[in-house]
């Protein structure tokens, strides 16, 4: 059964997910692609900054932080 996709920003620390779709446009899309965030990539939420934003994710062995308004443009499904 296929789960519904949710925005990446809704992930809680410790949760793992699979990238389904990127809604990001322009330069940021390129950036995100170049970090290896493509459909099928597994992302793990590491934690949020004390103020709740940005949010850090583990991506292919590296920790990358994104602002929540950017992260919510990445659709994921939970693993």
């Amino acid at each position: 059964m296929k789960l519904l996709s949710v925005p990446l920003s809704t992930l809680k620390p410790g949760e793992k997910s699979n990238v389904v779709h990127l809604d990001v446009l322009g330069l940021l899309r390129r950036r995100i692609l170049d970090l290896g965030i493509v459909p099928g990539t597994v992302l793990t939420c590491i934690g949020k900054a004390p103020a709740g934003d940005p949010i850090a994710y583990l991506i292919r062995g590296t920790v990358i932080a994104l602002r929540s308004e950017d992260a919510c443009l990445i659709a994921v499904e939970q693993v």
Binding site: L28, R31, I32, L35, P54, A56, T62, V63, I64, A65, L66, R67, E69, D70
Partner: peptide, 11 residues
């Protein structure tokens, strides 16, 4: 408006 931020947290 603030632009996006992509920040690496190296080990």
């Amino acid at each position: 408006e603030p632009s996006s931020v992509v920040l690496e947290l190296p080990p």
